[in-house]
Amino acid sequence: MYSPPAEPADQQRMRRAFAQSAGLVNATVTGPEVWGWYGRTLSSRVEHPDRGDCWLRLLSAPRDRAAGKIWEGNRKAAALFDGHVHKPFLYDTVESTKDGYTYRAELHQYVDEPTCSPSPVLRTRLALPASWWDSLRTDLEYVSGTATDRVAVRQEWVDRSVPRFLGTPSPRITAWATAHGDLHMANLTASPYLLDWEGFGLAPAGYDAAMLLAYCLLLPDVAQRVRDSFPILGTAPGRVAQIIVVTELLQSASRGDHPELVPALQDLITDLT
């Protein structure tokens, strides 16, 4: 989905660290490399002598920044949600530091099925059964009812960003719930498994549904299916969640991410306001 780091030296550094990390968890690389957002992560299918096929994910950060929400996200999500919702189990983590960088390697359960989309922005129509939507809704209900001290969205950010990107006063978040934090079809599979939990935390109620809706806006029939599956989107808290998600994605678009989604996001805001 994403590309390697722009600097060849960073690519080589990550590849060396990945090979070392595979050795630390006693795994053999068996699949092609998969780069994360701006080359911040490197992953691949691996073979483990006890676990069989697994997914090894390497996260990198400068040594003085190897902490915080994203760094700890998958580990803390595993403690709360493994075995309770459809997510890959986290089997092991190891850390290492070299040349000013810290690396966290995570050995996950391998999910042998494709994601519903290669990109967060859905561009291809999906024929998903009602059971798929029921499973997703059940899992998100469990997540939303799970207590956490992690925060995915902050009112302070909303107060700064909504006036800047929407030109309207910021809404007040009055209903909070735990959210996956990055829900789109590239993080969902046919089961559906929910992938990529590093950003989970407290967010406006309905945030996950609003995020999924926003990324599906280019296909109105799928967007309507999201609305039908998550009635909270038609409530006052759901409206607040949508305003916040649109603000986030417009901010992201201002940095060059998914500019093709901007007209649909602007249309959604017109409907909401």
Rank of each mutant, 00 (worst) to 15 (best):
S3F: 08
P5A: 02
A6Q: 10
A6G: 05
A9Y: 02
R13N: 01
M14E: 00
R16P: 02
A17M: 04
A19L: 14
S21C: 07
S21D: 01
G23H: 00
V25A: 05
A27M: 01
T28R: 14
E33H: 14
V34M: 14
R40Q: 12
T41F: 11
S43H: 03
R45P: 03
E47S: 12
C54E: 04
W55E: 03
W55G: 03
L56C: 06
R57E: 04
R57C: 06
L58M: 10
L58I: 05
S60I: 04
A61V: 05
A61P: 02
R63V: 15
D64W: 10
R65G: 02
A67H: 13
K69A: 14
I70Q: 11
W71L: 13
N74Y: 06
R75W: 01
G83I: 06
H84M: 04
F89S: 09
L90H: 10
Y91G: 10
Y91T: 11
T93C: 15
V94K: 14
V94W: 09
E95H: 08
S96G: 11
K98N: 05
D99L: 08
Y103M: 08
E106A: 12
L107C: 09
L107G: 10
P114H: 05
P118V: 00
S119I: 05
P120Q: 08
P120A: 07
L122S: 06
L122E: 02
R123L: 10
T124V: 13
T124L: 07
A127G: 07
L128Y: 08
S131W: 04
D134L: 12
L136F: 01
R137K: 12
L140P: 00
V143E: 02
S144A: 15
R150Y: 04
R150H: 05
V151I: 15
A152D: 05
V153H: 00
R154M: 01
Q155W: 02
E156M: 01
W157R: 02
W157T: 00
D159Y: 02
R160Q: 14
S161C: 13
G167D: 08
T168L: 15
S170Q: 06
S170R: 03
S170K: 03
S170L: 04
P171T: 10
R172V: 15
R172A: 14
I173M: 12
A177W: 05
T178N: 06
D182V: 10
M185H: 10
M185Q: 06
T189K: 07
S191P: 00
Y193F: 14
L195C: 07
E198C: 12
E198I: 13
L202R: 15
A203S: 09
Y207E: 06
A210Q: 09
A214W: 03
A214C: 15
A214R: 01
C216D: 12
L217T: 12
L217Q: 13
L217K: 10
L218K: 10
L218G: 04
D221M: 13
V226D: 14
R227I: 11
S229W: 04
F230T: 08
F230K: 09
F230L: 11
F230I: 07
T235A: 05
A241E: 04
Q242D: 03
I243L: 15
T247H: 03
E248P: 01
S252N: 08
S252C: 06
A253L: 02
S254V: 01
G256E: 03
D257W: 13
H258N: 13
E260Y: 00
V262L: 02
P263Q: 07
Q266C: 05
I269C: 10
D271M: 07
L272G: 02
L272R: 03
